[in-house]
Design a protein around this nucleic acid. Structure first.
Lengths: 125, 125
DNA sequence: TAAGTGTATTATATATATTAGTACACTAAA
DNA sequence: TTTAGTGTACTAATATATATAATACACTTA
């Protein structure tokens, strides 16, 4: 569920937090589900418990998880966060598309990419 | 031409290299044009010459500039690099759009963004 | 010759990331 | 009650990356 990329320039705690953010936002980890314990995940990834602890502290501060004393950390209700994340993704895409435009990427190319990604027998809305 | 963002998490040498990459790829700095000298840019930005040197070393290694002993650094011919960068941007956009799709961003939303960005009285190709 | 280039070297300071070890309070189950 | 498993907090040590500082040398141009 969680993997570490030691080639990445991102610190471990950030990689871990990022991964959980994605899993939670996409509903792979549903609200009220228990998170892996700090110690067990540390063993599984062969890294220090403090590093997991740091990742969880950020996730809690951001509202992705909540702790229960003596029991563990649990996935929070993230409907509000999901909408925020959606807006952020759209803004990032806009910036990237604009950069591409300046590098000569045409409108048609972008449309092609989108059509390909959304052409999977789904309702095109 | 070059600005430093001390709020950014990116190291100075990387900010500087990034900025020059963009300027060179977009043709703002044309091939054979002389780059600011290590020392003069260091004074202008009020940072250490070694930091500029480090940025230039990366740019040279990547083929954006070339040094001439005793004279300075000069902008290289980057037509090949530009194509590579273009491909990279397109690939990044694809990843981002795919993430957005998983977060519920619709095809229509992306099309709207693209139409807005490309609607500037330009030839729509 | 003098001033301006790139380049290399060494040392130092600082911040960050990570590991390591320990400790305490709490919960749940045997 | 005891035991094992939780989160949380703290200090210390270490490694690495970043940036500054101070020189030094070879080269080019005027």
């Amino acid at each position: 569920m969680i993997t570490i990329d030691y080639q990445s320039k991102l610190p471990l705690y950030e990689q871990i937090a990022d991964r959980f953010r994605t899993l939670i936002l996409r509903g792979v980890l549903p609200p009220r589900q228990q998170m892996p314990s700090v110690r067990s995940l540390a063993v599984e990834l062969s890294i220090n418990p403090n590093t997991i602890q740091k990742a969880y502290a950020f996730l809690e501060q951001e509202g992705y998880i909540y702790p229960v004393r003596g029991r563990g950390n649990y996935v929070a209700d993230v409907t509000a966060l999901a909408e925020k994340s959606r807006q952020k993704l759209l803004a990032e895409a806009e910036q990237l598309i604009l950069s591409g435009k300046e590098m000569g990427i045409t409108r048609s190319e972008y449309i092609s990419v989108i059509d390909r990604l959304y052409r999977e027998g789904e309702t095109d809305d």
